[in-house]
Design a binder for these strands. Structure first.
Length: 730
DNA sequence: AGCACGCCGACT
DNA sequence: GTCGGCGTGCTC
């Protein structure tokens, strides 16, 4: 007698595979198995029991081995992942395995964790029990004489098990350096005094707590301007869940950029273990953090988007910081949105979720305005900090010095004279986006993409920012040998140069992907900025994210036009968010801030709304416009992308897919058309946009499409993908 | 994604 | 004659 199992394998298959196993064997859902697959073998994860009666057109194979005694993923996580695979129309196996650390994907056994569970601390009995276990553990540990095994145990222990750690350090068995997934307390036992909450923060906290204890939960949008003390609210809310012995998940856009946030958490919770999950970890570190969350040893997990798939022993609260940030959206492969999935996961677990930002995404604001989310605002900045003064600079007919107006240069001069810092913001790295020949019109163009190469002066190379093509910049024109090539437009490198020329006495720090690619270099730069009173900062997007520069009083935004004139309908929303965040960087610590926007569009109505009535009114105006055009959040989009060796192939393939979707009310199909970047890395790209008036209709269309795909043989060398709720149409 | 199968070019 | 190039197709 045998039974059947539905197994997910890490392959781009849209279905689960059915295998048999002996009915006498005990198998729990969520365990890994070794299975025969095709000519070889593969690892798989048991997802469900299959109907035994159903006859199959193929010969079922038995699983080869059961690899786990206990499930890697619990029932909730399995259900959540299956939901995600359906929603994003992505291969189930890839979705399931994105929740399993690389280190466990080859079938290696789960490391043995000392099995204890997080014990709820409030009552004395539990405290006692916890202390007793620690004592037992300590006794056992003290018998370990070999430093290497002590080290191993130390690695498996949480930093929260301080007595043990302290004892080990004391005995000289381990050095007091923890793995990078764990936050080290610099001095044991030192408690940082709690900040006193403002009246508004107090009210806000109380309201959140009330909502979180209600029988029906809704996501909470906490809109707090930069410096209004959102983080302090997070900390207080987390306390409640820690006291119950529950864990908290905090999703942040890019953890490498927010070391201060992590520090803040570890200072506030010196007794708790905080684990970090981000792209900078190697497989071992990632496994460690994952195990800590799954076993319950980690009290708080801070991570980037993929941390939404982490297994938890007892998750009680989710917080999304900088909720509007588009880096929560994965832009390749499994194109999920970390925030949206977190909301779904919280809903499935019936636990509260808090979305924090100064500038809510339009869809989030719409949800709040419609009452689907609770909505709270923190308006005041604590202390005496006032909002910055804003200046729109009309640069029409102005002579610019490498993109900088005379007025901007004067404003920078005045800041420096007051021994204050200024920041110049331009969203383009490199020296100039164009290198060309004034004699014959030759232009440095990427051989593999339909895009210009960017000139990088420091390296003296031309680089394609789309495919990475990288060539030496020749002195003379390759077409007509004219010895003098010129550049057009500006990037961060050129702005850095012009500032060095104008202000030779002042250090200039440039922060972009080129200056921060090496590990720790961003931190070093930020350190310089903190330690230097008089300084100029140049950078891209990266500068806008969550750094606190107390002596910064002037911000100049240089490429406002690009955002105002973009054809992408998301561009304005992004600009509003960026502007509000960047403006929030200036004028803290009791010094007046000033923001300059250089533009040829000083009368742009949206710009005026943003400046005069603030982000909220601006965002609501954009929502109104989206409504008129029936764009999201008033419709539901899916972008089908295809790429092939020839544009015609890509277009024809999409046309075929389009025809598989029967015409129906409430569905618009746009395209297929060539993508805005027609060619990338020698491949031509086309896209088809599906816009439906409900998620259900969109889902239906995509089902037609994937069925059609199943029937038609794969076209040679053609790759295609589905992007649900796209945030970028390029 | 793997992995094998298969049908064409240059080698001992 | 065969080694291997990667284009194509399948995975319970």
């Amino acid at each position: 007698m045998e039974a059947r199992l539905l197994i997910a394998v890490p392959r781009p298959l849209r279905t689960l595979l059915t295998y048999t196993y002996p009915a006498t064997a005990q198998i729990t859902l969520g365990c890994r198995v070794a299975v025969p697959l095709g000519h070889g073998r593969s690892i798989g994860l048991v997802i469900a029991l299959a109907e035994n009666a159903a006859s199959t057109p193929y010969q079922l194979k038995p699983i080869k081995a059961l690899l786990d005694q206990e499930p890697l993923l619990d029932a909730h996580l399995l259900e959540f992942l299956q939901w995600a695979a359906r929603y994003y129309h992505h291969a189930i196996g890839e979705v399931i395995f994105s929740a399993i650390p690389n280190a466990l994907r080859a079938g290696r056994p789960l490391p043995q964790v000392l099995t204890w569970q997080a014990i709820p601390t409030p009552d004395a009995a539990a405290q006692l029990k916890r202390a007793k276990r620690q004592a037992e553990l300590y006794q056992w540990l003290s018998q370990q004489t070999e430093p290497s095994s002590a080290q191993a145990i130390h690695t498996q222990l949480g930093a929260s098990w301080r007595p043990i750690l302290a004892a080990l350090v004391d005995k000289g068995l381990v050095a007091e350096n923890l793995s990078p997934t764990r936050i080290q307390r610099s001095s044991l036992g030192k408690l940082t005094p709690k900040l006193v909450l403002s009246e508004q923060q107090q009210a806000c906290l109380l309201q959140c707590e009330t909502w979180m204890q209600a029988s029906t939960l809704q996501p909470i949008l906490l809109q707090g301007v930069t410096g209004s003390g959102k983080t302090e609210i997070y900390l207080r809310l987390i306390e409640t869940y820690l006291a119950r012995g529950q864990q908290t998940l905090i999703l942040v856009p890019e953890i490498g950029l927010t070391p201060q946030l992590v520090q803040r958490f570890s200072d506030h919770f010196p007794e708790q273990q905080i684990s970090c999950l981000h792209s900078g970890l190697n497989d071992t570190e990632r496994l460690q953090a994952w195990m800590d969350a799954r076993s319950g040893q980690a009290d708080i997990v801070i991570g980037t988007r993929s941390a939404v798939f982490t297994a938890f022993a007892d998750l009680g609260l989710i917080i999304i910081d900088e909720e509007h940030d588009t880096s929560f959206k994965q832009q390749e492969g499994f194109r999920y949105h970390g925030r949206d999935l977190a909301i779904k996961r919280a809903q499935m677990l019936n636990i509260p979720i808090l979305l924090g930002t100064a500038t809510p995404a339009l869809e989030t604001l719409q949800n709040a305005d419609q009452g689907r989310y609770h909505y709270l605002r923190l308006e005041q900045r604590p202390g005496k900090a006032r909002p910055p003064s804003l200046e729109v600079q009309d640069i029409r007919g102005q002579h610019l010095h490498s993109g900088l107006s005379k007025l901007s240069l004067q404003a920078i001069q005045r800041s420096l004279e007051r021994n204050e810092q200024a920041m110049l913001f331009i969203n383009r790295r490199g020296f100039a986006p164009m290198l060309l020949c004034p004699a014959c019109g030759w232009l440095a163009h990427c051989p593999a993409c339909s895009a210009n190469m960017t000139y990088h002066a420091r390296k003296n190379r031309i680089i394609c920012h789309h495919c990475g093509a990288d060539e030496r910049a020749e002195a003379a024109c390759p077409a007509c040998q004219n010895p003098q090539l010129i550049t057009q437009g500006q990037g961060t490198e050129r702005i850095e140069l012009v500032l060095q020329q104008y202000f030779p006495e002042t250090p200039v720090v440039r922060i972009d992907r080129d200056t921060t690619s090496r590990k720790g270099s961003l931190e070093r730069h930020l350190e310089t900025v903190r330690n230097t009173e008089r300084l100029l900062l140049v950078g891209t997007q990266m500068l806008a994210k969550g750094h606190d520069f107390p002596n910064l009083t002037l911000v100049v935004i240089l490429d406002v036009d690009a955002a105002l004139l973009s054809s992408e309908y998301h561009a304005l929303e992004r600009f509003g968010q960026l502007f509000t965040q960047v403006a929030g960087r200036s004028g803290r610590s009791n010094k007046a801030g000033h923001v300059i926007l250089q533009t040829t569009q000083p009368q742009h109505p949206k710009l005026l709304t943003l400046l005069h009535t603030g982000y909220l009114a601006f965002a609501r105006q954009l929502i109104e416009e989206r409504k008129q055009w029936q764009f999201p959040p008033f419709s539901y989009q899916a972008l089908i992308r295809a790429e092939a060796a020839e544009m015609d192939q890509a277009l024809q393939y999409l046309e075929q897919l389009r025809l598989s979707i029967p015409a129906q009310a409430g569905v618009f199909l746009m395209g297929p058309v060539p993508a805005p970047l027609e060619k990338r890395a020698e491949r031509y790209r086309a896209q088809l946009l599906i816009q439906a008036e409900s998620r259900q209709l969109r889902h239906l269309c995509l089902n037609y499409l994937t069925n059609q795909e199943k029937n038609s043989p794969n076209q040679k060398s053609l790759r295609w993908s589905i992007d649900i709720d796209p945030v970028e149409l390029s």
